[in-house]
């Protein structure tokens, strides 16, 4: 069983990465007493039978880990949501993608601690492959209201690459600074999307993350 919420989050993000997604949108919101996460992708998706099997701890998708006879990520998450009175839902469409949403009440005795979010984002963003990932973080509690956004292609451009130890160390420091300081960057994120539609960002993508793609993933 995972000991922090971040471990569940990383597990779900890895599912999206292993589903050959080209775009993954992650929203991590802390609103009042609830921790809400949504991970949406445009990967291979699942049909109805596969979606049902994904909730079986003794099922692992063929070709993913052929030497294993267990797939525990989603079952662990669903069990924790049930134990804590939270929510968990998985929606998927074969050939189009998958969306996983979970909400855990932070004040429930069985809810694990949040864990290391910057470390989780580091592991997610540095996973090898050619994909775009957008992580949106929003905190709204009695004492704090912050938001920031991380876009993988922007970070790769700023660092040159994100696979050597030097680049990853700088990225880690950057991610820690985002979580610790009260910088609101959602406005910058909106500008990124506008610029992306005019092809001003990652040359690999002519449109960047557009609202249309977000809707498609959801």
């Amino acid at each position: 069983m995972h000991t922090t919420v971040c471990e569940f989050l990383l597990d779900i993000i890895q599912n999206s990465l292993e589903a050959d997604s080209s775009v993954i949108i992650v929203e991590v919101n802390q609103v009042g007493r609830n921790f809400e996460v949504t991970v949406g992708d445009d990967g291979c998706g699942m049909d109805e039978q596969q979606l049902k099997s994904a909730q079986d701890p003794f099922y692992s998708q063929a070709g993913k880990h052929d030497h294993r006879k267990a797939g525990l990520g989603i079952p662990f998450l669903m069990q924790t949501a049930e134990l804590t009175g939270g929510e968990c839902s998985v929606k998927s469409e074969k050939g189009k993608g998958t969306s996983v949403k979970f909400v855990l009440p932070l004040d429930h005795v069985d809810t694990p601690p949040i864990g290391d979010l910057p470390g989780t984002f580091l592991a997610s963003l540095s996973y090898p492959g050619d994909y775009e990932m957008v992580i949106r973080r929003h905190i709204e509690t009695e004492d704090r209201k912050d938001s920031y956004q991380l876009v993988r292609s922007q970070l790769k451009e700023a660092l040159g690459e994100i696979e050597t130890s030097g680049a990853l160390a700088m990225l880690r420091d950057y991610l820690i600074s985002q979580e610790e300081t009260a910088e609101t960057q959602m406005n910058d994120g909106d500008n990124y999307e506008k610029e992306a539609r005019h092809g001003k960002n990652d040359p690999r993508r002519t449109e960047g993350i557009t609202r249309t793609e977000e809707e498609r993933i959801k």
Binding site: G119, T164, S165, A169
Partner: peptide, 25 residues
Amino acid sequence: KDTLNTFLSELDKAEISDAVVTQTG
């Protein structure tokens, strides 16, 4: 994750900045 973080910290201390650090399943 702790293993990954420690590799990055210790490689930084040893001034090794060009080691490729990746993940697998």
